[in-house]
Amino acid sequence: MSFSFDNNIPIYIQLAEKLKIEIISGKLTTGERLLSVRDLALNYKVNPNTMQRALTELEEIGLIFTERTNGKFVTEDKGLVLKYKKQYADSLVNNFFKSMSDIGFSKQDAINFLKEEE
């Protein structure tokens, strides 16, 4: 796996975002055990400390948890994953409306346009 990072934004924030997408998309399933910090860092080609920081971010919002001797796991709370999934979808939709409005589409026009495209 190789990813390109935007050097203007803290890498750990971008990493946390990528991992979040893995979880809400279901690529990482609820209750699944994560690779070790070091292996994750190697997969994403980042410094282990940066990966640790990204995981701490996700831990703070409850998407992953640590079992002291076993390592880190994806949350078992499906409702929480769904909540973050909706939140993420909301932000994508808002960005879409924003971009459409930049080129002169009202919200309703944008929705109609989407329907036509379907």
Binding site: N7, N8, I9, P10, I13, R53
Partner: peptide, 15 residues
């Protein structure tokens, strides 16, 4: 720290 610097300056280390 790199990420602190990026946050503070809103730019890459290179920039």
């Amino acid at each position: 720290d790199c990420d602190e610097l990026r946050t503070k300056e809103n730019a890459s280390i290179d920039e």
